[in-house]
Design a protein around this nucleic acid. Structure first.
Length: 469
DNA sequence: TGCATTCGGATAGACGTGGA
DNA sequence: TCCACGTCTATCCGAATGCA
């Protein structure tokens, strides 16, 4: 028996296919920059502009280990030749970042799990503000009172004009404050998601760390609260975050629509970025290419900020003695690092798959209601090679697809052979669907297989006139 | 060289406890 | 009721490895 994906009332769902085993992780050349990938200069073997860009943006230990450089010790603005290994001045204004000094790997790994100091400080400042707001008469955040969920930083221009400018002083994170219990007020009954529990959720304090969400050319951070079903009040003791899906599902749709991220277990993608992912996937781009797209956009923004810093610092150093601190690399995970991050292709594909799978019933229902007056039936052998393998041997030889007069997929079924018996049942259920939803039965079937004949034992009334062409 | 798989470190989230 | 702090665990992510 062929294994149909979902037929009858829900004849087809692309989402029902097991994920194709495309390359799950980026190859070594596209992996985030570790000490192992740091090079002196773009290697001759770099295959593309993107690869060269990846190699140029390498970590630098200079920001970690090099003390502030005094103006008196070097010539500001001297651009070192990457091929000359900075012979003239090792501490030139364009530091070794990207020009390639080998770095002690232990340095970059140490701070990997920690937030950078500049982010910690900004988060703590906001937290202090929120604590003050909580103690006010309304207990409502000043940002909510101002009509926004976003806590946006100053533009870099307004951060550049300060004495002894340092890179971390112009790093500014964007935060999104999500506390629907405060927004909706105590009158809103946010129920415990446990089916056996009828109690309501209450706040359990601040979430002690923000959560990163990847956007188009940067990341922003979610600030939320812990919610819980209190045991002391007879509840079940469940704890969850304010951005938990079980909370979002209970909110009024118009409020839930304001939440700007698709969250996975440990990461998240902004709805804007996810819209781009969907468009890219639906128009033929692969996950690796989309991952590269995001990486390039994040790098572009990083480069713009870096250029602003260098230009400003150069002017300041011409005017008087100032210390120069090298701009950290994109991937720098030190306490003063930029902490740039872009998602892998595998992760983007997983997010998209999860989303599509969550819409499976809707998509199946939509497909079941499509007409099928003029049909085309065809086998594809590509997908079957990659799915349902046992000990490396594919179980199915082909994916049979029936499209209607509008080119819409109407039936999709994996088959072990091209025998009619493999898809008879699917066609019979197609006919049942057409009757149920008030459509005419198929008038003609087109096929590219000249040996196809009418299905034995079936009349035209079953699936229409079957016509090899 | 690219794809597929494995493995280990990192960490988000759940949960408990105690204090204000 | 809120918050801080600590522990534990499932899961994610990327590097390493093997293979064609």
């Amino acid at each position: 028996m062929p294994t149909s994906t979902t037929l009858t009332r829900h004849p087809v769902s692309v989402s029902a296919f097991p994920p194709a085993p495309t390359p799950l992780a980026l190859p070594a050349t596209s992996a985030p920059f570790t000490a192992a990938t740091r090079v002196q200069a773009p290697a001759p073997s770099a295959r593309s502009t993107l690869d060269r860009a990846r190699q140029v943006v390498v970590d630098t230990s200079a920001a970690d280990t090099t003390p502030l450089v005094s103006l008196s010790s070097h010539t500001p603005g001297l651009i070192a030749d990457p091929d000359t290994d900075n012979e003239h001045d090792p501490r030139a204004l364009v530091h070794d970042d990207g020009l390639g000094e080998e770095e002690d790997e232990s340095d970059s790994d140490e701070g990997k799990s920690e937030f950078p100091d500049w982010l910690k400080k900004q988060f703590e400042d906001i937290r202090t503000e929120l604590a003050q707001d909580l103690g006010s008469t309304t207990s409502r955040s000043r940002h909510y009172s101002a009509g926004t969920f976003w806590i946006r930083p100053k533009a870099p221009w307004f951060l550049l004009n300060r004495a002894n400018l340092t890179p971390s002083s112009i790093f500014a994170a964007e935060f999104f404050l999500w506390d629907p219990l405060i927004i909706l007020g105590t009158s809103f009954n946010l129920r415990c998601p446990n089916a056996e529990c009828t109690h309501r959720l209450t706040r359990y304090g601040f979430v002690d760390r923000p959560r990163r969400v990847v956007d188009l050319d940067s990341s922003f951070w979610l600030i939320g609260y812990n919610y819980g079903c209190r045991k002391t009040a007879g509840g079940c003791g469940l704890r969850l975050r304010s951005w938990d899906k079980r909370v979002l599902d209970q909110l009024p749709p118009e409020l839930a629509a304001e939440f700007p991220a698709h969250l996975t277990w440990r990461s998240g993608l902004s709805t804007r970025a996810f819209g781009v992912v969907r468009s890219c996937f639906q128009h033929g781009m692969g996950s690796a290419e989309v991952s590269d797209l995001f990486r390039m956009q994040h790098l572009r923004r990083y480069d713009e900020l870096r250029l602003q810093y260098l230009r400003t610092k150069y002017k300041q150093m011409l005017l008087g003695s100032q210390d120069y601190e090298p701009f950290p690399a994109f991937q720098d995970r030190s306490t003063c690092g930029y902490h740039g991050f872009t998602p892998s292709g595998q992760w983007l594909r997983d997010v998209y798959d999860s989303f599509i799978e969550s819409k499976r019933d809707v998509l199946n229902q939509h497909t079941a209601m499509l007409s099928a007056r003029i049909c085309a039936i065809d086998h594809s052998h590509k997908l079957a090679k990659h799915v349902f393998k046992v000990d490396g041997v594919p179980i199915f030889t082909a994916l049979l697809t029936v499209t209607n007069e509008k080119g819409e997929i109407r039936v999709c079924v994996f088959v072990a052979t091209k025998s009619h018996s493999q898809f008879e049942d699917a066609l019979r259920r197609l006919a049942e669907d057409l009757v149920v939803y008030g459509h005419n039965l198929p008038e003609v079937f087109y096929t590219d297989n000249m040996v196809d004949k009418a299905i034995p034992g079936h009349t035209e009334s079953d699936v229409g006139r079957y016509a090899p062409v």
